[in-house]
Design a protein around this nucleic acid. Structure first.
Lengths: 217, 217
DNA sequence: CGGGACGTTGACGGTCGTCAAAATTAGTGG
DNA sequence: CCACTAATTTTGACGACCGTCAACGTCCCG
């Protein structure tokens, strides 16, 4: 959150922070169809959100980590339209949306913050559309790894070492590829000396090569 | 907008409606990189929004028609991140976002409306991700035609007759396919008696078959 | 230690992209 | 209004990329 707020404003914003809840790996924070009443701030842990089409296909729409907000999809119809599943033990804060609306009417900074969070999600999804619509498998996976590394780096973790919290199948679903293609592409990167992979542990050896893959000059 | 507002509230909302502007076919309403200050309500006409990656690939992120709101991407960084191009002569209303924020602090219904518009866009994009991530060419095009027809129908047009305002290439960009594939898939639909196509005029002969394509039971 | 989930690798085939040429349409200026 | 050029669309042939199916290997957790 931005700075320069009065104590009173901070108190009001604090008052939004509702129940904390622990979610174990594999459990869902909310389900498709469930009534919407809260946004959730992830305190620790890692989530995926996914939608399921009527005929059973499912699509991972995002991976969320500490500090990110989840549940924005539920606002429009007052029901969630996706599932949020914890990929590792997690802790979240439920924030009643009605209360967010109340307080954001009085605290400009909060109002702006809410708008930006939603707009940021829209822009992120534009990027995913570009990825899904026009990139090849290698480019998609490179973009995915770089995005994860960058977000982890922003949270104080290494820029070159990361642990995947999701399966190859989940990565594939997110990237519009099959799990075998994810596996093969990882192997290719390893052969080319771009990364080291041991299970879900990824070590980026040459970040420039990854970036070149995403952005062939 | 919802009903049950007082005259005063309606007046305030009306006050948001700023300059009207005519945009000719091919002109852009805003550009990537341009400073963000307005949302735009489309009064008449048809737009596409598209992003361009650094290496020149571009991706159509959506098609917008009368009654829809455009420009939400600009909120987060106060700069637009995509181009909005008119696909036919259009007329829009510029709505200063600062003013929207001001008034939505006082008029609950407007605040809620803004939140819903943004959430709806997020949910729409989830649907596009499902399409791009897991559907084959026929399914994508069928979903696209049905979506257009449904939106036009909601505006009082025929449910089975529509005129495409975009080229095959633009459809392809949106659907993550090449223009040749769009053309071929249209031809296939025609052969199968699902639609009639003359140029950009599409007549849906069997809407059920289209739906079955999108949702193979 | 054993079973199930997850990951890797290979062979093969299908879907869609690429390249090319021709047909049709739209747009422009005389 | 017509002629001419550019843009768009269609269709074909071919090939690449990725999906499918299958088998095997590995790791975790109970």
């Amino acid at each position: 959150m931005p700075i320069g707020l009065t104590d009173d404003e901070l108190d009001r914003i604090d008052s939004i922070i509702g129940v904390r809840r622990k979610i174990k790996r594999g459990e869902t924070l909310f389900h498709n169809g469930e009534r919407f009443s809260n946004l959730y701030a992830i305190r620790t842990g890692f989530f995926k959100t996914c939608i399921v089409s009527e005929d059973g296909r499912d699509q991972v729409t995002g991976f969320q980590m500490a500090g990110e907000i989840i549940g924005l999809d539920g606002i429009v119809n007052e029901h969630h339209t996706c599932d949020a599943v914890a990929l590792e033990d997690a802790e979240i804060c439920a924030m009643p949306f009605a209360q967010i609306e109340d307080i954001s009417r009085e605290v400009n900074a909060l109002q702006r913050h809410v708008h930006k969070i939603m707009s940021r999600e829209i822009v992120r999804e534009h990027g995913v559309m570009l990825l899904l619509g026009s990139m090849r498998a290698e480019e998609r996976l490179a973009a995915f790894i770089l995005n994860l590394a960058q977000r982890l780096h922003a949270r104080g973790f290494s820029q070159t070492e990361l642990i995947l919290r999701m399966t190859r199948e989940e990565i594939g679903s997110y990237l519009g590829l099959k799990l075998e293609t994810i596996s093969r592409t990882f192997s290719k990167f390893v052969d080319e000396g771009i990364v080291e992979v041991r299970q879900r542990h990824v070590h980026i050896l040459n970040i420039q090569l990854l970036q070149d893959l995403v952005n062939p000059k």
